[in-house]
Design a protein around this nucleic acid. Structure first.
Lengths: 400, 400
DNA sequence: GGATATAGTTAAGGAGTCTTACTAGAGGCG
DNA sequence: CGCCTCTAGTAAGACTCCTTAACTATATCC
């Protein structure tokens, strides 16, 4: 959880080695109220006092401070069965904004969301950049446009998160293992973007963010430990444990592309055997001809083409091996399949489950992604939002 | 982290949804000082004030309260270069005790440690119990003896942790997957022990505890994410992430016995292929004869016996597959090999590393266990200590 | 012996919370 | 309609705990 480029102020929140003086006490209580409001949507002061255990005067005073700082605002009224009318308070979504960026081989997706998580502007553009420099420029330019289009000022964007293939190496300031983006491993690329945008920028692996996206907005909600397997041009896995991203020692957790795979001739890695291209290859081996893409093979299988069907079966078996490895090591309660094959998961589920039954007694629930192509972007937004909320909260006292 | 049998009071410490009233403020500061003393060994009041950022009067008053509660005591003096002599304070190790229990197929090991982590009594007895009931009785009896031998009263033992093969199912109150202990899967066994002992009892997987032991007292210290692979009668893995046990959704993380393993004929699980018995089997297949044990094969290999050497090589290759799977999924910075093969890791390291090099570009550091057979027991103690410290601290105000 | 530096205490003041008591407003009911 | 009851919210003072500042105690250095 320490691979962010710019150190966000969020750390101040739960540092156990800090003295707890009165100011900190007040701050903690304000935070408690804000989080509670966020969870409940809106609430009256009396209600908050009951729920948090704080006294009514304390709630009133803390809430007044939050309103003063612009983090909270009145949001209508509520009349109880009998008794006086209550004034409701709610978090002010426009207290700050978060930026999410999904850099994929085919598409670049950028969105701005307010603190409530509502997307207020979004842009999807084709990634036609030939060089890493051009791609970086495209990212910065598009981000500026999206922010402008959202009607917010750049200073209001408190935090940004970028999703990219590969693993960001914090020390060397570059991405490793980004096979499918030429030149993307250059050092300092993200520093440049951060500088040109003027927004704290955090870089994460795309599969990890997709997992977090699916956890926050999709089918993973409430799971204690779930794994998101992203099958597309490459192969990746993101793991969310107790609501937090599980990144491993160097941010490389879930790089299941490197799982050993028992090939017929020699050991090769799983990525060669499971990624989108492999489906095409095996379909060809089974006798399909013509200009094939993974999508074409799946479409053919859906119409009953025998070679395509067998290729899909084989792909399912391969994915099952991935799931089996993840299940044995991680013990997830949910496995989500997503990525390029997202539209074809219906075809894959049966062979995956059948193979899994033969492989291992551990059989976690396997479901298709709900967010599809948007998982990475939404995950980036969710992550950026988390930090943005902290940043905006920390800022409140110094600004006013 | 929620598979403990008795809910420890530790949860009160960092519940973010609790109001932060004045009492809590004081409590947090006392805890801060206590933890700091624990880390430093001993310190003067002025020193603590400097390090924590609290004022001198606050430190004095909080420390007086801690001393009153028996958690802290004077521990000599220290004379600075110049200036008045300082009175040093240190945590009182005898403020409470923790009990660690390692239930293995061959041995039962039980130890009591004081709050400083010092083992004050220990007993290792052969596990000759034929039934699960007899084993439970043996555990309770031996535990009572050890506690008596340590010169402490049972009420002073604040928490106990048991390590056992298999996964403890909190809901059904029984152990699952404990293949090698007959009848050990019976429900309510641990509830009985807890009741008869009168100590809060927490149950964990033995490989998990071994990992925690190696993290706390062995070679894993400071690792961000490390995996402990326990190879013995069975096969297990424990994962420690950021100092905390990684248990998965149902406490089954690291059950790599269930990893699919490409057998020659049909898919079988890895446990069959890697556990101690497998070494014997393959040695026999390579032509060794006689009454073989895993230890005998390793000894023969050490003396150059060709069949034994080949069997060990094969074992190394198999372990490498395990490591490769763990590395791809978890991205550890350290992998520790331990368990029954602990004494033979020197023979295995080379083949493991060589095979790994061919399998995957990810190559985490691989080292042998430092604690050997004691890893599980020490891990249980370390875990129990963590909770015991919390319990004793929480108790302080109500007792006095 | 005085200057200086460190350890620790005492006294005064301040910040934030709690308790208690009150006012404000909305129905129910005789 | 007036009164009662119930809920929301405010006001005032007590209480707790922290901090600052000043002070005492004790050691070394010159």
């Amino acid at each position: 959880m320490r691979e962010n480029g710019a150190m966000p102020a969020s750390d101040a929140v739960d540092q156990p080695d800090q003295p707890w003086n009165r100011r900190r006490l007040r701050s903690t209580n304000e935070r408690l109220l804000l989080d509670r409001l966020r969870a409940a949507g809106s609430a009256s002061r009396a209600q908050l006092a009951r729920e948090t255990g704080l006294s009514k005067p304390t709630v009133s005073s803390a809430l007044a401070a939050l309103e003063e700082a612009g983090l909270v605002r009145e949001a209508g009224t509520h009349t109880p069965e009998r008794g006086r009318m209550a004034v409701l308070y709610a978090p002010d979504p426009s207290a700050g904004y978060a930026l999410g960026i999904d850099i994929g081989r085919g598409w670049l997706r950028i969105a701005v969301a307010d603190l409530a998580g509502e997307v207020v502007a979004r842009s999807d553009v084709r990634n036609r950049a030939r060089t890493s420099g051009a791609l970086a420029d495209l990212v910065v330019g598009t981000a500026r446009q999206v922010i402008a289009g959202s009607g917010t000022r750049i200073e209001e964007v408190a935090h940004a998160v970028v999703g990219t293939p590969g693993v960001y190496d914090e020390e060397r300031r570059r991405v490793r293992y980004a096979m499918h983006l030429p030149g993307w491993g250059r050092a300092g690329l993200f520093d440049r973007m951060r500088e040109e945008l003027g927004i704290p920028l955090e870089v994460h692996n795309d599969a990890n963010l997709a997992a977090l996206g699916e956890y926050s907005y999709g089918v993973g909600t409430g799971s204690r430990l779930f794994a998101y397997i992203l099958i597309g041009t490459g192969l990746g896995m993101g793991v969310v444990s107790e609501g937090r991203l599980f990144t491993g020692a160097h941010g490389g957790a879930g790089e299941i592309g490197f799982l050993p795979w028992p090939g017929r001739q020699k050991p090769q890695t799983l990525e060669d055997a499971v990624s989108g291209l492999a489906v095409v290859e095996s379909a060809r081996a089974f006798g399909m001809t013509g200009q094939l893409t993974a999508k074409a093979v799946f479409d053919a299988a859906r119409e009953g083409h025998p070679a395509a069907t067998r290729a899909v079966e084989l792909e399912g078996e391969r994915i099952a091996h991935t799931v089996a490895a993840a299940a044995a090591v991680l013990d997830p309660d949910l496995v989500v399949l997503g990525g390029g094959v997202g539209h074809s998961v219906d075809l894959l589920l049966r062979p995956v489950r059948e193979t899994l039954r033969a492989l291992t007694p551990l059989r976690p629930k396997i479901v298709p992604s709900r967010l599809g192509e948007d998982a990475v972007l939404l995950g980036a937004l969710a992550t950026a939002l988390g930090t943005a909320r902290d940043v905006v909260f920390e800022r409140r006292s110094t600004v006013s």
